[in-house]
Nucleic acid binder design. Sequence first.
DNA 1: AAATCGGGGTG
DNA 2: CACCCAGATTT
Length: 300
Amino acid sequence: MQPEPVHHRVISWYQDHARDLPWRSEDCTPWGVLVSEVMLQQTPVARVLPRWEEWLRRWPDPQSTAEAPSAEILTVWDRLGYPRRALRLQQAAAAIVERHNGEVPSTREELRALPGIGEYTAAAVACFAFGAPEVVVDTNIRRVHARVFAGDALPGKTYTAAQRRLAHRVFPDPELDDGQFASAWNIAVMELGALVCTARPPKCEQCPLAELCAWRLAGSPPPSEQQRGQAQAWAGTDRQVRGALMAALRQEGPTEREDLLAGLALPSADLDQRVRCLESLLSDGLAEQRGVQVALPGVL
DNA sequence: AAATCGGGGTG
DNA sequence: CACCCAGATTT
């Protein structure tokens, strides 16, 4: 759409209030941006920062990442969560070496074809690392759009087709400013969602859009039951058991299968669940079994 | 469209 | 203790 007050207000607000994050630095490489985006998938900025610093210090480019032992990749990943992301990030590095001569590709389509790079991350890297005017939509942006334009308290758990259409409809026209204005819109709305238009108690008194926010103008109605995501319990789940197994493999190194299964400090997990979870880790390539030993992958 | 996949910080 | 966090992949 044509530039409107909503666009100018958000971008101006960003220029005054943006956090100083290392992957936003002028001298951050596209690889640094890509690593940050993968680490930030479902993981807060504060927990990513130290892991990102160490990763880039050890593996500053796709080539070195592709050559590293997977066991080291998973150890540096530490407890960031969803360790399959770490494995896919290494697979993406290998694909970049093979298909793109070791240089992070700059188009949304090429990025989307890499392992672990979905709709959001492909658009984010193309925009933040290369300045491409792609429509970026993350959980922060979905929430801002839901409130400001749709008048809803929360966007709901799943990214719907209607929400995708809305994001495109309110995106500034890239033809106008060679895309400079359009690409600035993405990071500005995202930061507004992260700092002001937050999930719980939003700081509307600090918001540059408060006067024109549809949700606020409607009286800030509370979220419906449908909009409130039902958080699945954590204790007793396979995810907890898988996480405990991975933590043990990181800390203890190669371990006899029977000792690994018996040593888990999770009394609630019966043997069937422990075996099922270990088998799933082996199947995912997050662990390897060699004889009676189980270990992180890639170490001979 | 829904399920699965970690882990920790926070109101 | 429920809820949230710069999602991707599979079914």
